[in-house]
Design a protein around this nucleic acid. Structure first.
Length: 231
DNA sequence: CCAAAGATGCGCT
DNA sequence: GCGCATCTTTGGG
């Protein structure tokens, strides 16, 4: 039984949404197949922070960032599509950074095989499932999500939604976001990852050399965000 | 119309 | 860890 996230889920602070999305499942229908990936890595962006697209100002392309929580914002950069969901407050949103293929009764092995066809490697060969959604544009490629179809749209139970599959995420990693140029609020700790899937993220936040308390923090269930602001 | 950037990804060291 | 390919969108001429 699918259990789509209600609009109210997204109408909260972006960091809360980013954290809560870990372990949720994105489902996108392609023909008769429901392609699916569980979310393992997210980043929050705010109107006021200089790393965000919204901080560049309102334009037609960026309008979805300013719509009510639960709108889809997609953009194209560096050779691929990226997926975001708007959160509470104009200009605030969550970027979906990485996922992991999800297989169940609705999204079966045939759906996974289609995802591998959608997102082959540079030689045209199928990727290992653990690499298939290990990046914001890889995820969109595997799931078949495109800017022209989904930007500024809402979820649609016949085509695309986020499913609460009741997956436990006992430990969440909170760290600085990736790829933010210096001077653009690059230190803000708005990146969130499922600790059990850390090695399958865009970059492993627990890789050798990273130090807890300096490079990242661990949040267990019920623990407030670090450094404590739930805004 | 064209140049350049961009919330990246890959391959090699 | 670093260079380079990536290719659509964007904005200036």
């Amino acid at each position: 039984m699918p259990s789509p996230l209600p609009d109210a889920f997204f109408d909260r602070d972006a960091q809360c949404v980013a954290r809560a999305l870990l372990g949720k499942v994105i489902r996108h229908r392609q023909g008769s197949l429901w392609l699916a990936a569980r979310i393992i890595e997210t980043e929050a962006y705010y109107l006021a922070d200089k790393g965000s697209h919204a901080s560049l100002g309102y334009t037609e392309k960026r309008k979805a960032l300013f719509l009510d929580g639960g709108h889809i914002y997609m953009y194209y950069a560096r050779g691929g599509d990226s997926l975001n969901f708007s959160a509470h407050g104009p200009g605030n949103a969550v970027l979906i950074k990485a996922g992991f293929p999800w297989v169940d009764a609705l999204s079966d092995a045939n759906a996974l095989a289609q995802m591998q066809l959608n997102n082959p490697d540079a030689q045209g060969k199928p990727r290992a499932p653990e690499r298939l959604c290990a990046g914001q544009t890889l995820l969109c490629r595997a799931l078949g999500l495109k800017v022209p179809r989904w930007d500024a749209q809402r979820f649609d139970l016949d085509h695309l939604y986020v499913d609460d599959c009741d997956i436990a995420v006992p430990r969440v990693i909170q760290a600085a976001r990736l790829g933010i140029p210096s001077g653009r609020d690059e230190h803000l700790p708005y990146r969130f990852a499922d600790a059990e899937y850390a090695r399958h993220c865009t970059r492993n936040p627990l890789r050798r050399g990273q130090v807890e308390g300096r490079d990242y923090h661990i949040l267990t269930e019920g623990m407030p965000l670090w450094p404590g602001s739930t805004a």
